[in-house]
Design a protein around this nucleic acid. Structure first.
Lengths: 300, 300
DNA sequence: GCAAAAATGTAGTTAAATTACATAATTGAT
DNA sequence: ATCAATTATGTAATTTAACTACATTTTTGC
């Protein structure tokens, strides 16, 4: 997925393509994940690269081969086996990989942290959440979800507790498109509304774990009455099982009591993305509505 | 701020240091900054590289030279002039530079985007918001804010509209520390509560623009009654002027109707960071409260 | 205008990466 | 256990890319 950087407005020389690429798996992770599948010499190459990744970016093929005690073509074949054209491309990937935060970066806040350090860790954990989300976005059902929302009689945002705030925020965003929207933030309302749901109702249901029983019961009811359920939740959850479409949100592990629940950032951002994509699909009226609602807040 | 990654505990081959470096200046910035100092042919090389940075990482020296209409040694000399040993090193730097988000990346969504492209742009805009926030966090008054919160009689979260959802979410997070918390989300409540504020009340006031008149009036009232005002808002706003401490949130420019307001992600994340830092300062009781409130949600 | 210095390019050399082919090792069938 | 086929590996040769030496051109300062 490429981004076109257009800043020729300020600097006429800049006309290049900046790729903010998927920041998840890197070549070093690929190598490590494939260790059991390598032959004897391939394994030597892999071991050498994993041990000397930094060094490798400035090391010619001949030295890599002798370091790994294999021949030069064996290294080239290793690169080919990893899906690259040759050693040059491996180098490119290595350089790139060494610039990227890894998913196992440890952001745990501890009692010993001073305020700024703790704040930075929180922030970097939040960045990581969004970066991980960025990496999985291509597999999410945006087109399908937006298609059903376009014809919706109403959009119903559902969430409990912290997810309720997300749902409420999302409702506050989507109503501006001109589609009827409501938020159900307690179990009684969720159940009662689901009991009278109709086929052109679209639910956007937000849940961290996807396992709260009465929430699931409500979504089952709504689904039985023909409503569409778009869930933002854990992909292996019961809620995901009930939903028509699921936006997979795999929460980071809870490591200590201080860990803020950054999955709601992911939820919020996904809902932003859904609103924007829906606005685009709806076209001119939605855009006009967005402008009118924004202008309504302008202070004279 | 450097992170030292030590994972030889899990994988004995990994023995390198991964630096999560400051996401600032890169070789392309260096080239651009030195444009006035280049000779005619050097300028051609610079222009070509700035125009074709992405292409350059897979382009041999001979093609770069002919693309720039200079000789090959001129390109090498250019690299030397930029402080590098040769073209190979330039390539390494280019590859590295292109992995880093730049502050001027343009994320505008347009009508022509398909759903996934638009979603990705929204997401990357959100990442950028947090990355920018990360860069300015060291100048924020965490210590001072946390000090006043530690002795607070109550914490009052204030916000209107979208910021109201943020305030509500934050209230829902901070109450778990065991301090009395409330959220004032409409102007009547804000004014009435401010009219009876006391010196040990701490306000956390969230506002995108910091210019809504009745909100400011309320904060002036509270401030006159001795309450502490911690504002998350635009640093040049009226609200910032009233506040005891300000967490500067400079909103990205509104470029089109589709732009989601990502400043609330910044607000949410800052509030997360504040909660965590406050929890640390409060020590064992707060940590215990966090664990108890989490356990209360566990489904048997 | 002229000499010196700097910039630049042509041609040749070296380094690095890749390919072709031969040999060794492994696997599967009998 | 043996043998044939397949796969893996290395040696040597070739190609590509980067770099250097030297000649020519351009620019600068007096």
């Amino acid at each position: 997925m490429a981004y076109y950087l257009r800043i020729s407005y300020f600097y006429p020389y800049f006309n290049y393509i900046l790729v903010l690429s998927a920041l998840n798996s890197a070549i070093l992770n690929d190598i490590r994940d494939n260790l059991p599948r390598f032959s004897k010499s391939e394994r030597k190459v892999a071991d050498w690269l994993l041990t000397n990744a930094r060094l490798a970016i400035d090391t010619p093929l001949s030295a890599v081969a002798s370091g790994a005690t294999v021949s030069e073509p064996t290294v080239v074949r290793f690169c080919r086996k990893m899906g690259m054209s040759g050693f040059r491309e491996l180098k490119t990937h290595l350089i790139a990989a060494l610039q990227k935060p890894q998913s196992y970066v440890h952001h745990d806040v501890s009692q010993a942290d001073d305020a700024t350090s703790a704040a930075i860790k929180v922030l970097e954990s939040s960045v990581q959440t969004l970066v991980d989300l960025r990496a999985s976005i291509a597999h999410m059902p945006f087109d399908a979800a937006v298609s059903t929302m376009m014809d919706a009689r109403q959009l119903i945002f559902v969430g409990l507790g912290a997810s309720g705030h997300v749902a409420s925020d999302a409702c506050h965003k989507f109503f501006r498109l001109g589609i009827p929207c409501s938020a159900s933030l307690d179990t009684q309302t969720i159940l009662q509304q689901a009991a009278i749901a109709s086929p052109r109702d679209v639910y956007l249901t937000i849940s961290h774990s996807g396992s709260w029983p009465l929430l699931i019961r409500g979504m089952q009811l709504a689904q039985q009455r023909g409503a569409t359920i778009i869930a933002l939740t854990h992909p292996s959850s019961e809620l995901a099982g009930v939903a028509t479409y699921t936006f997979d949100c795999v929460p980071a592990e809870d490591t200590n009591a201080f860990t803020p629940m950054s999955s709601r950032l992911a939820h919020l951002t996904l809902l932003d993305a859904l609103q924007v994509t829906l606005a685009i699909k709806l076209g001119g009226t939605a855009e006009n509505n967005l402008q009118l609602t924004k202008a309504a807040l302008a202070i004279p």
